[in-house]
Design a binder for these strands. Structure first.
Length: 277
DNA sequence: ACCCTCACCTGCACGC
DNA sequence: TGCGTGCAGGTGAGGG
């Protein structure tokens, strides 16, 4: 159930294990995982392709292949990768498998079946429907305070909802959107266009900080290399997030109980005392 | 162009 | 025990 930090770590792990490997054979086991290709096309396009590198754009994982194709993967809520030995049994919810030239098998497992794969020509990658409308990467120069200000100016939606819109800001999901607002002391109901220019740098910084701190925290952990799914956390819940999933628990700043509300059908957690404006 | 609701799935925790 | 409900870290389609 990944946002940018989890996808980033999955991408790094996959790059480490797959770079230079060849997919000898690939099987699509669930049609809706890759609705634009038939299982036959899927197998044919990946057959004997060498994996040159694995990168990321937003929450999309990109496997760059030697045959001038790119396999785009989105984990959505429950997608994960698993390395297994060639002969072992497939776990439940295995929807694709890749037989590698090192006698290992890479499985794609996805309980809720929201995950997504698509094979595109390399030269068409950034024109693809999946990538063409994505906002700038949050760590890029293009994602500047000026960009953020102008983007917020154009929207009357609640700030929390806008932060989830990948065409405005990319990489945040329900957790880190709430965390970034808490860090900025901004109320999640606040209309995007009403945020004053002088508060933009703090929000801009907070977005980068919640993402980069999460990346660092996950990267510092000992990761089960077999199970590449982003659910790496091993500590207690209160060590993870400042507001997310802490309804009724005391705010780390002021001890006021964290509140949970619903915004466009999704939970938002915030401190009603610290996040007044 | 914007904004809202619904839809896609399985599984888990909860209350009766 | 069972069953109903609501919820889960995401997004796309289709409507107004």
């Amino acid at each position: 159930m990944p946002e940018l930090p989890e996808v980033e770590l999955v991408t790094r792990q996959l790059d480490h294990h797959l770079r230079g490997r060849t997919i000898q054979r690939a099987r699509l086991l669930l049609r809706r995982l890759a609705p634009d290709t038939t299982p036959t096309q899927f197998a044919r396009l990946l057959h004997n392709s060498r994996i040159e590198s694995i990168t990321r754009r937003g929450k999309h994982i990109l496997l760059l292949l030697s045959n001038e194709r790119v396999l785009i993967v989105h984990l959505r809520m429950t997608g994960r990768f698993l390395f297994v030995s060639a002969g072992s049994r497939k776990p439940k919810h295995t929807h694709a498998e890749f037989f590698l030239d090192d006698r290992r098998r890479l499985l794609f497992i996805d309980q809720r079946q929201f995950g997504f794969m698509k094979i595109v020509r390399a030269e068409e990658l950034y024109q693809s429907k999946e990538l063409c409308k994505l906002a700038p990467e949050p760590f890029s120069e293009e994602f500047s305070p000026k960009y953020l200000y102008e983007t917020l100016q154009r929207s009357n939606r609640a700030l929390k909802e806008l932060l989830l819109d990948q065409t405005r800001v990319t990489g945040l999901g329900n957790i880190y959107a709430a965390e970034a607002l808490f860090r900025s002391r901004i109320n999640p109901h606040r209309r995007a266009s009403s945020l004053s220019r002088k508060r933009i740098p703090l929000l801009h910084n907070s977005i980068r900080e919640v993402l980069s701190e999460a990346i660092d925290r996950i990267a510092a952990m000992r990761i089960d290399i077999e199970n590449i799914d982003g659910s790496y956390f091993t500590g207690t819940n209160d060590e993870r997030w400042r507001v997310y999933d802490r309804e009724g628990k005391p705010c780390f700043n002021c001890n006021a109980p964290i509140r949970r509300i619903s915004q466009s059908g999704r939970s938002t957690f915030y401190c009603p005392n610290c996040q007044r404006g």
